[in-house]
């Protein structure tokens, strides 16, 4: 599969990374190089193989339903670029 600049643009938009046209053009051959290389995986016969879920046998533990956290608003907001009145601030969103 070969990707073009339109696809790279679409992926950049999905990934929320602004890219200039020049950056997009530069990435197209890189992208194709890497994808062409990983596509050799298609050769492997995986009939009847389940995708890996846990590398080391282990089961998901469940915690008890107890409130053990929260009430740390100062910590939560400590690093925020724009915190006001206990909220995080973002550019106005029109829904």
């Amino acid at each position: 599969m070969s990707v073009d600049s339109k696809t790279v643009k679409k992926i950049a938009s999905l990934a929320r990374i602004a890219m200039t046209d020049a950056e997009v053009e530069a990435m197209v051959p890189e992208f194709n190089g890497i994808l062409g290389w990983v596509e050799q995986l298609g050769e492997v016969d995986v009939t009847g193989v389940e995708p890996m879920t846990a590398v080391i046998p282990n089961s998901l533990r469940l915690r008890e339903d107890v409130v053990t956290d929260g009430n740390i608003r100062d910590h939560v907001l400590a690093n925020a670029p724009a915190a006001e009145h206990g909220f995080f601030g973002v550019p106005k969103v029109i829904e």
Partner: peptide, 17 residues
């Protein structure tokens, strides 16, 4: 997370890391 779920708390008070 272990933060509480109660309705109507102060903003970002029931938030864990």
């Amino acid at each position: 997370s272990g933060a509480a779920t109660a309705f109507g708390a102060e903003p970002n008070a029931q938030v864990s890391l």
